[in-house]
Each structure stands twice: as C-alpha cells, then as structure tokens.
Design a protein around this nucleic acid. Structure first.
Lengths: 340, 340
DNA sequence: GATAATCGTGAGAGCGCTCCCATGAATTTG
DNA sequence: CAAATTCATGGGAGCGCTCTCACGATTATC
C-alpha cells in the first residue's frame, strides 16, 4: 500500500495524493475529497521512512535523560515531564523517542542521535553542568532545548522554573511566620538548580534581616537518604525551621526530625520543593513549592518544535512560575495570628 | 555525507561499504579495515530513514502505555520498566519510542504505530483487559509482547511475574506467623493482576485451613487513596493481618491503621506487593513481594527483538520469579519463635 | 589440468515518498 | 481579443540506503 496505489484507486497522480496528505492548498475540493475517501477506505498511512528520506525530517523528538539522574527516576518527576512532552507531541503530530544515556553507550548514542537523521531535535532533561552532550549538540547544529537553566551558556534555549525567586518566597514565608533560625538543605551544589535555590534562601534571609550561618546549611543530593543525613547534621545547631530543596529530601529530613523526638511544625517548621504527589500525604502534610512539571514538559516540547520548524528563531529561555502550596508542615495555622 | 562518499574516499564501491557497515562476512579484512578507518575519521553515521526504506525495518521498538494507567505513572514502576527496556535496546542496538496512549489520539496513534512502518514491534505495558490495541496488533500482524499476562489470549507473547504463586506465598507467610484473620486489599478486579493476586490469597487461606470471608476482602485500585479507603472498610471486621496487592496501597492502608490508633505489626501485620523503593523506608519497613521490574523490562524487550528477527518463532509467555522480602511490618521478629 | 565451487567486489534496481518543473485549462488584464 | 497570470495536475529526479545478480579471481575437487 503506497501513494501510487492510492493514486490509481482515486484516478489521480501520485503528486496529487501527496498534496492531499500534506494539506497543500493547490488541490481542488473535488479531488481532495475523492482522495481522502480512498485513504479512509484503505486505512492508508504514508511510510515514515520514505517521507523522512525525501523530506529530510522525521517529526521525531529525542528526549535524553542522563544516567547520572536516572536514579532520580524513582521520583515521579520524569514521568510527569514525559507526560507533558507527550501531550505536546500529540498535539503537533510529533513522536517522542527516549534515550536513557548510559555512560557506556554514550558516545555511540550521541553519534546516532546527532548524525543518523533519526530525530529532528533534542530535549535534554536535567543535564549536569558542562555535559559534553550540549557541546556536541551545538557543534552538530541541531535544534535543542534543555530543561533546566544552564548558567554557562546564554544562547541556549531552555525551560525552567525560577528557582531563585521560588526559594526566596519559600524562605520568606518561613521568616514571616517568625522563624529565626531557618536552616537549608541544598540540592547538589554542582548543579545550577542547587546553587540557585541556595541563593534564593540567602537572599530571603538578608531581606528579612536574618544573619546567614554556614552551620545552618547542609548539602544534600536530592535523595531521601541525603535529606535524612543532612538533617542529622543540622539538628545540633537547633534550627527552628528548614527549607529543603526537594520533597524527597524533605521526607528524609522529616524522618530524622521525628526520630530525634522533635515535632513538625511545633519544634521545626519545614518547607519543601516540587509538590510531588506524596507531599500532601505526609504527616504532617508538607508545605512546598509547586513546580509545573507537566507544563514544563509540554512547553519544552513546543519550544523545540518551534525551533525545528523555524530555524531562524532565536533560542530563548523560558521560566515558568511556581506556586507556594501552604500545608501544615510550615506551622502556618499555629502562627497565622502572629504573622498577620 | 553518505555511503557514496565513504566509498569514494576508501576506493571501493558503495556496496562494499554497505557490507562493512552491516558486518557482512563477504569482505576481506584489508578492505574492511580501510573502510572502517574512513568511517571513523569522517564520523559517518548511516541515514536511518534510507536504511529503513530499503530494508523495511527500523530497529525501533514502540512502548505503549495506556492512559488509563498513566496515573499509575506516579509509581516508579514505569520508570524502572523503561530503564530495563532501554538497557536491552542498547545492548541489541535498538532504540525505543514511547507512546502514552491518550484516549483522544488513540485511533490515530494506533494507525500510525501499526501502518507507518515507524516501528518494528510493539511492547504493550500493563494493558487493561480486552484492550482494542491488542486486536489491532494481531490484525496488522506486527510482532508484539505484552507486559502482564492476558487470560483471554493464549497465543500472545507476554512477560509477567507469577502473581498467583507470589500472592500465595505472601499470604502463606502471614498464616505461618499464626495470623488467623488475614484480610486482603485487592487490585482492580477488572484486571488479570488483580484477579490473580486475589486467587493466590484465597488458595493460601485454603492451604492453611483458614476460612475465606468476603468481609475480609476489599477492592482497591492500586492508588494510595484506594488503599486507605479499603483499609477503613476492613478495620471493623478486626483483621489481624492484611495482604495488600501493591505497596502504594499499603502506604495508604498503613495510614488508615495508624489513624485508628492501631499498631503495625502488633495489632495488624501487613505485607505488600512490588517492593517499591519507599517500602524499606516506611515505618515500620514493609514486608513485600519484590518484583523484578527492571528485569521484566529487559526480558520483554529481548523477547520482542527475538520475535522481530525471527518471525517464525512461536510467541511464548515468560513468568519471572518474585522474592518475598521480609521486613518488620509482618511481625516476623515478634512471632518468629512461634512460627519455627 | 579441466570443471566446479567459493570468494570479494561492483553495478543497478528499487524502497515510497517530496519537490521542482512542465503543461494545459481557466481566468484575468490592458 | 491577444497576452499574461493563475490554477490544478502530472512527470521525473532524487533522497541514501539494501539487496540481488553478475563477474572475474581464487581455491577446491576428481
């Protein structure tokens, strides 16, 4: 079943069928209807390989997730991101290809991704700083969008949340509730996210006239265990609140607090980051910064498609707004009066 | 950059270069080396579209996850599955394409998947019973493998765990620990998984000489909330143990137990299913049936690839073994003496 | 040592599409 | 009303690869 067959069946030429399929305006309504009828009847679907070969594009997006973070994959973060991307792809008639960048295969994969013509553009998720992939991508002059701001390259299209502003707001919220010894469990500090969120925390302290104490900052790695360990290090310094850079770490931190016989939010107030599905189910429910993960996925995909179909478009960065979701863990209800 | 160029540079014909690339034995060692050198130098990668067009296969596997379960996506189940599939694909030089089957796009997608020649075979993950996709797949005579047994089609290749046996073992474990009023929170009973696990539970009761009571069985839907609600329904009937058909539901159930002032495992022992990463971090740590999810993914992919490259191969079902991971929630340590 | 099999290689067709150009009919223009 | 423009359509080349067949050279067979 191919264009030729459809052409014969509908009494026109292959070219005309192609025009119908590609919605060219240069077809009479009569012919169009006739051809579409036959296509419907025969359940015809143009061959993608042939199409790609002739046209030079595949309408396939590549999503690359570095192995370094594929452990993070235990978070529902990526599933949500993927759902968002998929939605955008569906809407624009694109498909998505997923690569989990295993170190061992990285070189081969990179070549395949970049030079085999399989994909029209690349979505890089949560790349570590200075990933070689990025350099390779610009060298190959392929359209791409990274998820997460890269402070080292300003001319790269990215989609991210405003980590700085979000963290500032989260910390300010704790300060407004009259907490004075506000601690911070950071993300990995070799990533832009980790740094940005810490800077937001620092700025909030300054804005609130609180002094910054290195003892009240502990580095985490976005994992449950990392959060637990970091909290253990913070406890001896008697924080009365803690802003944790991810919900998963907050779960670990919460456990550390409870194991030490302290109560949340009475002894230590807590704010997380992400608003993962489990955040609302924690005990107490976690106040946290909601990231529009799904939306981030679809915006990233849309940006990439734009870049593909419009090669002259300047790559630009997009920061999506977050939302502070106030639940019980920050002690809002306890001190609401005092804060007003 | 194409075959012709490589051929010219290495002083052979296009055909020979093609042979080198495809590891044909019909090339002298000398020529092979010469050509490989040039390929290395020029960073050449054959065009996939052209290759597919000429050969009729793409070396791309399609992974289809129905929307119905994409909420389940909040479990790290699918990420793990995907990781397994990816690993197998990497090893066999295949790539993977992901489709989240959104109802609205289902028809169009199905056609694209089946007839556009984009993919060589389909992996169906966690399909609901009687999914139309399955029928379409066999009609189109495409190789495919489903993840999860389908009781309605015996000639379909599938990869699954032995849900029946696993559930029987899990329940038997509770019975051996001298629990007598063992309840069960089921999965959705319109799925094979849900039914199989319940049957395992029933068989274990019978084997242990315990009587089956409908009041001690509550249907869940694999969600946290579903587990919570199911447990609330069970509590009035005073179970002394409960076998929960998924870890996520077990989390919900555990919350219900604790909110009612009861203790696990002292008042109610609990066994889950999945061994999700969080199971070990629960309080108390959850005894549960470990599914080899990652392995399931890679086995599924390998089976599919086998089917693709070997069209005469009979599709066959594979059941992977599970493992009962004993932690504190079943009260093993409490009653170990009694059980010996 | 003549015949047959094997091996390494090249030439050419063709996979199914897109895209450019040609063509003739219908329409507009001065 | 002749010339120019627009429109709907068809023809043909070509995208970059694979695969079959042909061909000469080498090796095996009796």
């Amino acid at each position: 079943m191919n264009l030729e067959t459809i052409a014969r069946l509908s009494g026109v030429s292959r070219s005309t069928v192609s025009r119908v399929i590609n919605n060219s305006p240069r077809v009479s309504e009569d012919t169009r209807r006739k051809v579409l009828d036959i296509i419907q009847q025969t359940n015809f679907q143009p061959n993608i390989a042939a199409r790609s070969l002739a046209s030079g594009c595949t309408r396939i997006l590549g999503l690359v997730i570095p192995t370094a973070v594929s452990n993070l994959f235990v978070d529902p973060y990526f599933p949500l991101l993927i759902q968002g991307i998929t939605a955008a792809c569906n809407a624009r008639d694109y498909s998505m290809m997923l690569w989990l960048a295993d170190a061992e295969y990285e070189r081969r994969m990179m070549r395949q991704i970049l030079y085999s013509g399989l994909i029209d553009g690349v979505l890089l998720a949560s790349m570590p700083e200075n990933d070689p992939m990025l350099e390779a991508l610009r060298e190959a002059r392929r359209p791409f969008v990274v998820q997460g701001r890269d402070p080292h390259h300003s001319d790269v299209a990215y989609v991210d949340v405003d980590n700085l502003e979000s963290s500032r707001q989260a910390t300010l919220h704790l300060a407004r509730l009259r907490h004075r010894r506000i601690a911070h469990i950071t993300g990995p500090l070799n990533t832009a996210v980790g740094k940005d969120r810490r800077r937001g925390y620092e700025q909030a302290l300054q804005l609130s006239g609180l002094s910054y104490s290195p003892a009240l900052v502990a580095e985490g790695d976005f994992s449950y265990e990392g959060g637990y360990q970091a909290m253990l290090r913070l406890l001896p310094h008697n924080p009365d609140a803690v802003f944790v850079a991810s919900d998963t770490m907050a779960r670990g931190a919460m456990r550390a607090v409870i194991e030490n016989g302290l109560t949340i939010p009475e002894d230590i107030a807590m704010v997380g980051f992400d608003d993962m599905p489990f955040a609302a189910q924690m005990e107490p429910p976690l106040t946290t910064v909601r990231q529009p993960v799904l939306r981030m996925g679809s915006v990233a995909a849309e940006t990439l498609i734009e870049l593909i179909e419009n090669p002259n478009a300047k790559p630009l960065g997009i920061r999506l707004p977050t939302e502070l979701v106030i639940r019980a863990s920050c002690g809002f209800s306890l001190r609401a009066g005092a804060a007003a």
